[in-house]
């Protein structure tokens, strides 16, 4: 079947909004258990790329496969693929009218058709996984940003996804809360979850990523392992970017 364990294959993705070309041909493969981190200046299409993978944004050109099955142009089967591809958003997008527990349960009940006890059991397990079991009955408005983001990770995990897309998961959080979310993500990576992460957290990128992809002007400008990228003199653009970024952050 799939000898080299490729879970997700992205080929030549193009996307324009109006006459602005946001993505200009992006391709990569994701191996099972890998954490790919996308960095780069804002407005270079990183978030759009993630949305093109699970077809929340329809790419103009290019194809995406999950386990050798094509996602692009899959019609209504896209809802099956979206179960298999979790997504975590910058602004959490928790369902505001539901408690933390119900947020995690909802898709289990409505999409996977579990019965109530099963769904509850599973949702509690996932909340435990992100350390929020005690907050199960709280509404989104009663959670801190970090807690809300962890609930949204639990919500994605509950679907037993093969890969999770993280779209700037900590950009809306202050440093304290950022850390608790990054810790959860780090643990997931260690447990072998396949992850695609768009982030500005260089520390996380360098310590967790199996590969870093530096995006600029709608293309992958440079890519490599964290080690290579930080030590090989060849990768000048990314190093500039990281340098600027750190001084901008005051770090």
């Amino acid at each position: 079947m799939n000898s080299n364990n490729i879970v997700l294959r992205v080929e030549d993705i193009h996307k324009s909004f109006g006459d602005k070309e946001v993505l200009r041909g992006i391709s990569f493969d994701v191996v099972k258990g890998e954490t790919k981190v996308f960095i780069g200046p804002s407005g270079t299409g990183k978030s759009t790329l993630l949305r093109c993978i699970n077809q929340l944004t329809i790419p103009d050109r290019g194809r995406v496969w999950l386990d050798d099955e094509e996602i692009t142009n899959s019609g209504t089967r896209i809802n099956y693929f979206r179960q298999k591809i979790g997504m975590v958003f910058q602004n959490y997008y928790l369902f505001d009218h539901l408690t933390a527990l119900k947020n995690v349960e909802l898709a289990l009940l409505k999409v996977r058709g579990m019965n109530k006890e099963e769904a509850r059991e599973k949702a509690l397990t996932e909340l435990r996984q992100v350390g929020l079991e005690d907050w199960a009955d709280h509404y989104p408005a009663e959670l801190s940003g970090g807690q809300a983001q962890r609930v949204s990770i639990a919500r994605a995990l509950a679907m037993d996804p093969e890969v999770i897309l993280f779209d700037e998961p900590t950009s809306a959080l202050d440093p304290e809360l950022t850390r608790e979310v990054l810790e959860v993500m780090k643990r997931l990576a260690q447990q072998g979850m396949t992850m695609l992460v768009v982030t500005h957290e260089m520390g996380f990128a360098c310590s967790v990523a199996t590969e870093i992809l530096f995006m600029e002007n709608g293309v992958v400008a440079e890519r490599g392992t964290p080690d290579l990228l930080t030590h090989d003199p060849q990768f000048t653009r990314m190093k500039n970017f990281i340098g600027q970024f750190n001084s901008y952050r005051g770090g």
């Binding site: 699970n54 929340l56 209504t76 809802n79 099956y80 693929f81 979206r82 179960q83 591809i85 979790g86 997504m87 958003f89 602004n91 997008y93 928790l94 369902f95 505001d96 909802l106 898709a107 409505k110 999409v111 949204s152 919500r155 994605a156 679907m159």
Partner: peptide
């Protein structure tokens, strides 16, 4: 975001609207 998050979980538009 509510619709996007629901669709990202694999809900159809109708399911997202209803639930």
């Amino acid at each position: 975001g509510q619709m996007i998050a629901a669709q990202a979980l694999g809900m159809t538009r109708a399911q997202a609207i209803r639930n």
